Amino acid sequence: MTLETNSSIQIQKPVEEVFEGIVNPEKMTKYFISESSGRLVTGKEVIWKFPEFEDKFPITDIKIETNRSIFFVWDPETVVKITLEKLADQSTLVRVNENGKEFNEDNLKWALDNSGGWANFLACLKAYLEYGIQLRKGAFDFMRNK
């Protein structure tokens, strides 16, 4: 049995704008990561840095379907799938699924943590794209000294 996390949110922006907000590092650094070595592109590998962690995270096995889906690996045991659905009112439904870890106590903690993490990602994406608000700015500074 494998574990998975799922999160979703509706963003009041066109699918093209939401897609660009996810693949473009200049936008992502406004709501999710602090650094990126480049744009998410099929077949490319990029490195992400988060403001609250010293580690850098390689993003591999990237597969992009423009304005529809973003797939990548940042944990060798899991695949992240972000899907975008254009809705009738020109807003976008964003779904995040991460799965692949075997069921055990440590991985159950991972699933709970990542569920919250992806919900945070979506809330920050929505706040940034709809209102220009950077919810993560200073939000996790307390974690730097751990």
Rank of each mutant, 00 (worst) to 15 (best):
V15G: 01
V15L: 12
E17C: 05
S36P: 04
F32N: 04
G38V: 11
E26Y: 04
V23E: 06
K30M: 11
V23W: 07
V18F: 00
S34K: 07
V18W: 03
I33K: 12
E16A: 14
G38W: 15
I33D: 07
I33Q: 09
E17R: 04
V23T: 09
R39H: 11
K13L: 10
T29A: 02
Q12C: 09
K13G: 02
E20I: 01
P25E: 13
F32P: 08
L40R: 03
E20P: 02
S34R: 04
T42V: 07
E17I: 06
K27F: 15
R39T: 12
P25M: 05
G21D: 00
E16W: 04
Q12K: 13
V23F: 10
F19K: 09
P14T: 11
F32V: 05
E17W: 05
Q12M: 13
L40N: 08
K13C: 12
F19L: 15
E20V: 02
G38R: 12
I11P: 15
T42E: 05
S37I: 10
P25K: 09
E20H: 01
S37L: 13
I22E: 04
G21W: 03
T42Q: 10
I11Q: 10
V41W: 09
M28K: 08
E26I: 03
S37R: 03
S37H: 08
